[in-house]
Simulated assay, not measured.
Amino acid sequence: MFTFENVTYLDILHVPSLTIHEHQKTCIVGESGSGKSTFLKLLNHMISPSEGQILFRGKNIAERDPIAHRRDVAMLTQHPVLFGESVKDNLLAGVRFAEQEEPDENACKQAIERFRLYKSLDDEAENLSGGEQQRLALARITLMDSPVYLLDEPTSSLDEELEHEVMENFMTFAEERKKTVIFVTHSRSIAENFSDETIDFHKYTLKGEGSS
């Protein structure tokens, strides 16, 4: 699905050759500063390589419209961004961006309950804890129904038990709908239990002090 061909980004990251396969769960691991978040941003077309090219389904990402690309490749950042005031506003932000049909209230409730977030859709999102905001953001991107999901430390604010349950529920959603998932985690347990393939950034030539 993604192919890296001699990709360099500034003095942070160099990936000579790499293929990420469709419908797989790929985990990215490495020390802080090894370029993991930078890697996801490259996949999401938020930034562009200094050298080389990244192909998505055989086409150079640089030649794709960034907005259209992000409809196909949805990204959850490490620190979730809130949109609007209510839980419902935040749930619908993704589908509105993608210009998709908005789900009904029952679908919205099912989305947040999948991640053990038992809140009213009218509750104010800013009053949620960090962990609740992470789960709300996960629910939001599942409603977008994108072919590819990029997750940057999606459960970092959760305790271990809840972290495993939330990841298991997300991966079940992805498997049932044949999604491709690429995720970054510092948790060895999450990496071992929820990935088909693990990419350790230490095997690449990494230069300077990259973003984590």
Rank of each mutant, 00 (worst) to 15 (best):
H14Q: 04
T172Y: 03
K109L: 05
A125C: 13
R71F: 01
T180Y: 09
S37I: 03
D145Y: 03
E113D: 14
D89L: 10
E124Q: 12
Y204G: 05
E192F: 01
A137G: 09
L91N: 03
V184I: 15
F170Y: 07
I112C: 06
H45N: 14
M144Y: 08
A125W: 14
E85F: 04
E113Q: 12
V73H: 12
S189Y: 01
H45G: 09
H79A: 11
F201A: 03
I54F: 12
K25I: 03
H21P: 00
Q53P: 03
S212F: 05
R64I: 08
L10R: 15
Q134H: 10
E168D: 13
M1L: 13
M144K: 06
S189M: 03
E197L: 11
S17D: 13
G52D: 11
E132L: 02
L158D: 11
K88W: 04
E197W: 09
D145E: 13
I54C: 12
E197P: 00
Q110W: 02
L13R: 06
H23R: 14
V73S: 12
N193W: 01
M167F: 04
S195Q: 04
G58I: 05
T3D: 12
S129P: 14
A125S: 15
N60C: 13
V7D: 06
N127Q: 14
V29T: 14
S17G: 02
M171C: 01
E105N: 15
I199W: 09
K179S: 09
D196Q: 04
V148K: 10
L206K: 15
H164N: 06
V29H: 04
F201P: 05
F97G: 10
R188K: 08
F2P: 07
G210Y: 00
R177I: 03
H79F: 08
I67M: 04
S195V: 04
Q134T: 01
F173A: 05
D11A: 04
E175K: 15
A68V: 00
L18W: 14
L91W: 01
M167I: 00
D200S: 14
C27Q: 01
E209V: 07
E85W: 07
D65A: 10
T198R: 10
D145W: 02
L151C: 02
G84W: 06
H79S: 14
S32P: 03
D122Y: 09
T205G: 08
A174C: 07
H69G: 12
H202Y: 02
E51Q: 15
I54D: 08
S50D: 14
S32E: 05
D123H: 15
E163V: 09
N44V: 00
H45A: 12
L92E: 05
S32R: 02
K36L: 01
S37A: 07
E31F: 01
E102K: 05
K119P: 09
S34A: 00
Q134A: 08
V184K: 01
D123A: 13
I199A: 00
H23N: 15
S212H: 12
T77P: 01
A107R: 07
R70H: 10
T205A: 13
Q53R: 15
D72W: 00
E163Q: 10
R71S: 13
L162K: 02
Q110G: 11
V73Y: 08
E5K: 15
H21E: 15
S211Y: 10
I199V: 09
G33P: 05
S86Q: 12
L40Q: 11
E192I: 08
Y118H: 13
R140A: 02
Y9V: 04
Q133H: 00
M46H: 14
D11T: 04
L82T: 11
